[in-house]
């Protein structure tokens, strides 16, 4: 499903260069639940952004669903992001002036669905995260945990094959964080591939597979038998 080969991401800053990703190869199959862990600045987000087609590698090849996306144009990448991927960000990234329903609707708007259909799907997604009754509210009227649930609803509204979550629990307290994690596990149990970045070893321990990154390199990659 996700196949990274020799991915480098190098930022040159005058004469010094930063190797954010230093030769990463990673293969993630459909239905996996992968946790990417590592210290701050190790390159986790950079890696995730490349997987999420938000960024392109300096070199290396990336096949998503069998197609080479490392050479794709901006608009083609936008289509991939829209149809195959769902994002959950640490900072939720909801649009403040849109209602919850409108926020969740957005990926479907860009998919070109008619208003009726996308409203139904967005409402159903909000129902799944238990916030359907507040669909007319604005993000600022919710707690952090609730906002993160809305962003999960937005990620899954379009029924993507892969959910990418960059520290989804980073801004939440332990209990709310655990709720979010449970939700991701449930999604994974229903067949969605989940890739999640986390700092928290306890949370990572819940994943089926843990990939550790340090200084832009993968230093360990282990499957956790107890979660399979």
């Amino acid at each position: 499903m996700i196949d990274l080969k020799d991915i480098y991401k190098i930022y040159s800053d005058g004469d010094s260069e930063i190797r954010a990703l230093d030769g990463i190869s990673l293969n993630i199959k459909e239905g996996e639940f992968v946790a990417i862990v590592g210290q701050s600045g190790s390159g986790k987000s950079t890696c995730m952004n490349i997987i999420g087609c938000l960024d392109v590698p300096t070199s290396g090849t990336y096949h998503l669903n069998g197609t080479d996306v490392s050479t794709m144009k901006d608009d083609e990448l936008a289509t991939i992001r829209n149809q195959t991927l769902g994002f959950i960000f640490q900072q939720y990234n909801l649009i403040p002036k849109l209602t919850l329903l409108e926020n969740v609707e957005l990926p479907l708007v860009y998919r070109g669905y008619p208003p009726q259909k996308r409203k139904e799907l967005a409402y159903a997604a909000l129902e799944r995260v238990g916030l359907a009754d507040r669909y007319k509210k604005f993000p600022s009227q919710l707690s952090g945990g609730q906002q993160q649930r809305v962003s999960i609803a937005r990620a899954l509204a379009g029924n993507p094959k892969v959910i990418l979550a960059d520290e989804p629990t980073g801004a939440l307290d332990t209990k709310t964080g655990r709720d979010v994690l449970e939700f991701l596990k449930k999604l994974n149990a229903d067949g969605t591939t989940v890739v999640m970045i986390t700092h928290d070893n306890e949370i990572a321990a819940q994943a089926k597979r843990i990939v550790r990154i340090s200084d832009g390199k993968i230093i360990s990659d282990e499957r956790q038998a107890q979660n399979l």
Binding site: A78, P107, Y110, R111
Partner: peptide, 16 residues
């Protein structure tokens, strides 16, 4: 800018 980034991450094309 951030809103534009969010929209793009959700699949907005240049023309959108």
């Amino acid at each position: 800018t951030r809103e534009i980034g969010i929209r793009k991450s959700l699949g907005a094309k240049k023309f959108d």
